[in-house]
């Protein structure tokens, strides 16, 4: 639920010339995504255009403009994880779940997002489930991890 007063509180807590990214991080943390209403409110409070806010939101991969599933699984797609079969495992999981990158399962339980490097490159392939890191994920390991969320 969008709560304008909550947006105001967040904006007030992060004043300063560099505040927009920090504000957006806090909004997404609070609401799970950044809605049109939130963007309008931020623009109003910072005295910048909605286009400027939207420009920043759409530029950065972290920011979402749509709600996500109850759990978020980020799978690393970068080279080191590919060298250990991460791309093959990820493709198999996406096919089984019937979703594409960024998609959410029909029951709304799990969203699978790509991430380009979690810095665990010597223990590849790696993933992050709801903020918790997992490494050395072979096909079975990845399937078990997804099952935790399903």
């Amino acid at each position: 639920m969008f709560k304008p007063e909550l947006v105001n509180t967040i904006v007030d807590a992060h004043q300063g010339p560099d505040g927009l990214l920090t504000i957006l991080h806090a909004i997404q943390e609070e609401f799970g995504f950044i809605s049109e209403d939130a963007m309008r409110q931020i623009a109003l409070r910072l005295n910048i255009t909605r286009a400027e806010v939207y420009g920043v939101v759409s530029f950065y991969h972290d920011y979402r403009t749509q709600p996500v599933g109850r759990h978020v699984l980020k799978l690393c797609r970068a080279e080191a994880c590919q060298s250990m079969g991460g791309d093959t495992n990820a493709a198999a999981l996406l096919a089984r779940l019937g979703v594409d990158w960024g998609g959410t399962t029909a029951d709304g339980r799990l969203t699978v997002e790509p991430v380009y490097c979690l810095g665990l490159c010597a223990c590849a392939p790696s993933a992050m489930l709801d903020g918790a890191l997992h490494a050395r994920l072979d096909a079975a390991g990845l399937e078990n991890l997804a099952q935790e969320a399903l």
């Binding site: 560099d18 990214l21 957006l24 991080h25 530029f59 950065y60 991969h61 920011y63």
Partner: peptide
């Protein structure tokens, strides 16, 4: 500490500065 938002290009020094100023990187 300033936290980025998942844009690889912000590792480029001038893009990083724009990002740090709260803009598109």
């Amino acid at each position: 500490v300033f936290v980025g938002a998942g844009a690889y290009v912000c590792g480029e020094e001038t893009a990083l500065l724009d990002s740090l100023e709260g803009k598109r990187g």
